[in-house]
C-alpha cells in the first residue's frame, strides 16, 4: 500500500521543529510500524537526508523504549499495543498518518521522535523500591502473600515505563505511572515498612518533575499498552491521604 506520512522533525532540543511530509510506496501490511519507518530511513540515508530518529529496542512490546503519537493516539490505534507491535495492516492504502513525539513539558524532545523520559527514573529513585541489602533477605516462604494480593501487585508491576500515559493525558500527568509502582509495592507485605515514605516521596518527585495534575480524564489508561487500570490512581490517592494522616 501507499502512504503519506507527516512526521515531526526537530534537529535538537532548541530547534522549533515542524511536521514534514513523506510519501512511502509499497508498504507491506505485515510490516510493523517501526519496520515501516526503517524502510523510510533506509531511503532517506541513500537520498542523503538525515533519517528519522526514534527510540526503540526490544521490538516485542516489553522494554518500553518505543513510543510515538500516531494520528493523535499514543502508540497508535490498536488497544494494548506498543508502537513496535503495531502493524501496518491497521492502516489502509492511501492513508495519511501523522507521527509526533510524546508531548509533555516533563518529556522534552531531544530529536525528532526521541524524548527525554528520565523524570520517570527519578520518580522510581525517590521511593519506588523496597530497601533490601543484597544477601540479607529472609527465606522466600517466610512471608506468604495471598494470591489475589500477589496478582494485583503483578498487574501493576507490568508497567513498562513507556510514558504513553503522560503523552495521552491532556494535563501531561504521570499519575498512572506513579500509581502503578506505589500500588505494586504498597500492596505487598514486603513493601509495608516504607509504605508512607514511598508514596510521599514519589508524589513529591512527580510534582517536582513538572508533570501535570490528574483530573481523572481516563485517557492514560486507554493509551496504556499494559492496561494499568484507573483504580491504581484511586489507590495512590488513598495511600497518599493515609501517609499524610500518619505523618
Amino acid at each position: 500500500m501507499n502512504l503519506t506520512l507527516r512526521i515531526w522533525r526537530q534537529r535538537g532540543p532548541e530547534d522549533r521543529g515542524a511536521m514534514v511530509t513523506y510519501e512511502l510506496a509499497d508498504v507491506s501490511p505485515d510490516m510493523s510500524f517501526l519496520e515501516m519507518l526503517d524502510v523510510l530511513n533506509e531511503r532517506l540515508i541513500l537520498e542523503g537526508e538525515d533519517p528519522v530518529a526514534f527510540d526503540h529496542d526490544c521490538r516485542e512490546g516489553i522494554c518500553g523504549m518505543c513510543g510515538m503519537v500516531i494520528n493523535g493516539q499514543a502508540h497508535g490505534p490498536r488497544d494494548r499495543t506498543t508502537t513496535c507491535q503495531l502493524h501496518m495492516r491497521e492502516f489502509a492504502d492511501g492513508d495519511v498518518i501523522d507521527v509526533e513525539p510524546w508531548r509533555a513539558a516533563a518529556f522534552p524532545v531531544m530529536r525528532d521522535l526521541v524524548v527525554d523520559r528520565s523524570g520517570f527514573d527519578r520518580i522510581i529513585g525517590s521511593g519506588g523500591y523496597i530497601s533490601v541489602v543484597t544477601g540479607s533477605a529472609p527465606e522466600a516462604h517466610s512471608t506468604p502473600v495471598p494470591k489475589p494480593i500477589a496478582d494485583a501487585a503483578f498487574d501493576n508491576a507490568t508497567c513498562i515505563g513507556c510514558g504513553a500515559c503522560v503523552a495521552a493525558c491532556p494535563n501531561g500527568s504521570a499519575m498512572l505511572f506513579t500509581s502503578a509502582k506505589v500500588t505494586h509495592l504498597n500492596l505487598l507485605p514486603q513493601g509495608a515498612p516504607e509504605r508512607e515514605s514511598r508514596v510521599r516521596d514519589m508524589v513529591a518527585q512527580m510534582d517536582e518533575e513538572g508533570f501535570g495534575g490528574c483530573t481523572n480524564t481516563g485517557e492514560c489508561t486507554v493509551a496504556c499498552p499494559k492496561g494499568i487500570p484507573l483504580t491504581s490512581i484511586g489507590n495512590l490517592n488513598r495511600e497518599y491521604l493515609r501517609a499524610l494522616t500518619k505523618r
Partner: peptide, 24 residues
C-alpha cells in the same frame, strides 16, 4: 494553570478524546 504548563504544545493531529463530554 499547572496542567496547561505541563502540556505546553498541542498535538497537530487532534487527540482521540476517550474522555466523556463531561470530562472535557
Amino acid at each position: 494553570r499547572r496542567d496547561l504548563k505541563a502540556r505546553p504544545q498541542k498535538y497537530s493531529h487532534r487527540q482521540r478524546l476517550e474522555a466523556s463530554y463531561a470530562v472535557n
